[in-house]
Design a protein around this nucleic acid. Structure first.
Lengths: 335, 335
DNA sequence: TTGTAAGCGTTATCAA
DNA sequence: TTGATAACGCTTACAA
């Protein structure tokens, strides 16, 4: 059952049927109704393979994302999905676990015309590659950017976010502040490290490299980090985690070690913890987790809207949108 | 740059170029090399829009899923993604939040030939509709099934899982056992309710309808459920949550209410909680959460493999695969 | 307002 | 082994 069949059944041409399907104004009410009747009776639906080839569009976008097992990403992805569905686009998802080969492989969906554009949650490719891609295809980096490249992107000011977080810990009397971060797969991490260092130096605190621990962006990673930092001769009294998922692992571990005890009465001071992202779990944990909020919904929607702009006007100049973050103080930083 | 251009540049026909691209055996080594050289030099990549139309295949599958904000689903989805990537398939994702209209809309991706098959995490459509769809398209239900329909599916034995859970709580001396579940969007919920009731009646306990609370499958839902159940005149001493996400909300609320106190010394008994799914958070919470484990990775991989079978042989008889579950006892049920 | 027909980029059949 | 060409289903000039 194809458009030709409908044409035969109505006694009209395929062109007219096509016009009806695409809501062209130049069809009389009667023919429109005649065609629609037959379409309804037959249950015909257009084959998009033909249409897509003809118009050279897919109405699909690609989202390349490290994982969806982190509520930070899944929330943004849900926002993208909502926005794209409202605009008649569907999402092809590429989960990479930071595997560069996979990242490249998914990018082939652009060269092979299987998607119209892409949103990338990554920043590991050379700036030259990123710029070249951006010249060829509509792409937007979300939460990340590639220094020195010319690519449209949306993110928060990660340096400032980290600066705010660490400054706050310092204001609470901490000087030995540990940091647990990922493996520099992301530009955001480098920026947060900049903010961390800036806050220390602005307050006359010398950075102790032993206080920085590198691991995966997982609860397990947080566990490892907390253990390593607490094993130090002179352990930190506060820990800045580069993600709430890490922070959760940190807190769990510190609780197990009795470095955090709720309603402490032995006069000792709990280790303070501050996270990043503000995922829903922050308020459910004990202690509730202080963090730097990223506007996840807005990040997703903005990324999609920017991509739409790029798709509609490929020659548009690339822009960098910076959305506001917010330091949220809950219990875990108040020790 | 298309296959015609490559043909011109090599002085061969498009047919031969196509054969090289598709690794046909009937090309001489020399021509193959000649073509491959030009392809490499020009950076040509085939346009899948043309190919897809010609072969009437997309190498894409659709996954319709209620949410990815629940680690239960995101873990299965990652498994599907891994399996499909290994087999050269890409995933189109449809997040529905249980919106039936959206579910239908995403199903149109099948009728319009934009995907080759679909994995559905839902069971709300009539058995007639499901059967009809299954006759027309390769589809597989994952974690769910539709009673009376003829559709390939994979899930655990939800009734038995709930039976095991509730029986265990009874064995620990509980007779007043609350249940917090979703809004019967899923067949799995009905099955779990059957198991819950069976366990009660097998142990001579009469079911008290007041002990069943209906809400959303979220932490917020768990909070509401716990509050409602604890407000009862004769509140339950144990709560069976139909999902770990709910269980987390329940536990947080019970802790806030002092119905759960770690290292309790006032002689009172904590309310026991048992979840379902076994998401990673179960071990990070205090108390750690007892639950019924679903083999998430295996569910995802099996769903994909079943779909592959259906796609390769549309006339294959539908099967129902049941994977093993496992009761995992941690702290939250031991009060 | 409607119809004719070209063409999107591929693959596959058939003939050479 | 290679080439010529039809066909996949659709949209869109252009013509009527």
């Amino acid at each position: 059952m194809n458009i030709k069949d409908i044409a035969s059944l109505t006694g009209l041409s395929v062109a007219t049927v096509s016009r009806v399907i695409n809501n062209h104004s130049s069809v009389t009410k009667e023919t429109r109704e005649k065609v629609e009747k037959v379409i309804k009776e037959t249950g015909y639906t257009p084959n998009f393979l033909g249409r897509n080839l003809r118009v050279s569009k897919t109405h699909k976008i690609l989202v390349i994302i490290p994982t969806i097992g982190n509520l930070f990403y899944s929330e943004i992805l849900e926002a993208i999905q909502e926005a794209s569905t409202n605009s008649g686009f569907n999402i092809l998802i590429g989960i990479t676990n930071n595997d560069t080969e996979l990242e490249k492989k998914y990018m082939e969906l652009l060269t092979t015309k299987q998607v119209d554009g892409a949103i990338l949650f990554l920043s590991r490719f050379d700036k030259e590659i990123m710029t070249a891609w951006s010249k060829k295809f509509p792409i937007v980096q979300c939460c990340e950017y590639t220094r020195g490249s010319d690519v449209t992107n949306v993110s928060i000011d990660n340096k400032q976010g980290a600066y705010d977080a660490v400054s706050y810990l310092i204001s609470k009397g901490h000087t030995k502040i540990g940091a647990i971060r990922g493996q520099l797969y992301f530009a955001s991490e480098a920026d947060r490290t900049d903010g961390y260092m800036q806050a220390l130096s602005d307050n006359g605190i010398e950075r102790d490299l032993k206080y920085s621990y590198v691991t995966e962006y997982t609860m397990e990673g947080g566990k490892k980090g907390a253990e390593a930092l607490m094993r130090l001769e002179n352990p930190p009294t506060a820990i800045f985690a580069y993600g709430d998922t890490i922070a959760i692992g940190v807190i769990k571990t510190l609780k197990d070690m009795k470095k955090i005890v709720m309603n402490r009465k032995d006069g000792k001071r709990n280790v303070a913890v501050l996270g990043f992202d503000d995922i829903p779990l922050c308020t459910l944990f004990t202690p509730t987790i202080s963090t730097v909020e990223q506007p996840k919904y807005q990040l997703g929607v903005t990324a999609f809207n920017l991509l739409m702009e790029k798709m509609n006007d490929p020659d548009m100049e690339n822009k960098s949108v910076v959305l506001p973050h917010r330091l949220i103080i809950r219990q875990s930083s108040e020790f």
